[in-house]
């Protein structure tokens, strides 16, 4: 952490030399301040898209994970097939496919936002499915037997006994996926989503100061992700009070 701050400090100080032109994002000048506002405004879609996508992918992941734990081979095959295929598609390719390909296939046109969310969520759901499967499998057999001995059915066993414990255990991994999602959302800039990366790209085209603008972009993601990390840690601590 300390080293990082030193690096940032050096980067800022070197703005005095000829190589840097911080004026482009200098908040004390009128154009610099408006450029900065322009860049930061992209955070809205970066966050909205990532959070929507992670919510969908968690639900989707759980729905794919459960058949993977079934006694029936056909269900497990469905799980394996889904995970292996979806996991093998690069996110960028999936974004392009959903945005340009899916309308031709289904006649259904998605706007940039939902195409991006759908691609991100689909891609992440395969990973979520594996995380959930691991988490659920880590719960001891005794918990299922205890649930069975008080006659809980499968749904209630999952809902009240297994999943609450499994989710506590996979929380660090879920936090990891959210961080990953925030970063991967930058790829949706290629289809024109006005999120952080797209805004930076547009500014670079008009101002022609890629070094400063992309440095600010790096810092924007860094701040976002540090906030998410802190949030996940807080949640973990809060939930730990009721862990085994």
């Amino acid at each position: 952490m300390k080293r990082l701050w030193i690096l940032i400090a050096i980067a800022c100080l070197s703005g005095c030399s000829d190589n840097w032109g911080w004026y482009v994002v200098d908040p004390s000048t009128k154009s610099g301040a408006s450029n900065l506002r322009f860049m930061i405004s992209g955070a809205y879609y970066t966050i909205l898209m990532s959070v929507t996508a992670i919510l969908i992918s968690v639900v989707l992941g759980l729905l794919v994970a459960l058949p993977g734990l079934s006694q029936r081979k056909a269900w497990r095959m469905f799980n394996r097939t889904y995970v292996e295929i979806v996991r093998a598609v690069p996110i960028l390719v999936l974004i392009l496919w959903v945005y340009y390909g899916l309308p031709q296939l289904s006649g259904l046109t998605l706007n940039v936002f939902w195409a991006g969310v759908l691609a991100l969520a689909l891609s992440d759901s395969a990973f979520q499915a594996e995380i959930f499967r691991g988490g659920i499998q880590s719960i001891s057999k005794g918990q299922y037997e205890a649930a069975q001995s008080i006659s809980l059915n499968y749904r209630d066993t999952m809902r009240y006994v297994i999943l609450p414990q499994a989710i506590r255990r996979i929380l660090p991994a879920l936090g990891n996926q959210l961080v990953y999602m925030l970063k991967m959302s930058s790829l949706v800039s290629v289809i024109g989503m006005q999120e952080l990366t797209r805004k930076a790209n547009e500014l670079v085209v008009s101002e022609y100061r890629p070094l400063e603008i992309y440095t600010i972009l790096v810092l924007e993601y860094l701040v976002l992700i540090l906030i998410v990390s802190a949030g996940v840690r807080w949640l973990e601590r809060r939930m730990q009070s009721s862990e085994v």
Partner: peptide
């Protein structure tokens, strides 16, 4: 059934361990 390893639900309070079955089943 009472188990050797108790198998209580660790994330639920004692009272919630006891009421889960009667309420849901």
């Amino acid at each position: 059934m009472v188990f050797q390893q108790f198998n209580l639900f660790p994330h639920l309070s004692v009272i919630d361990n006891l009421t889960l079955g009667p309420r849901r089943v």
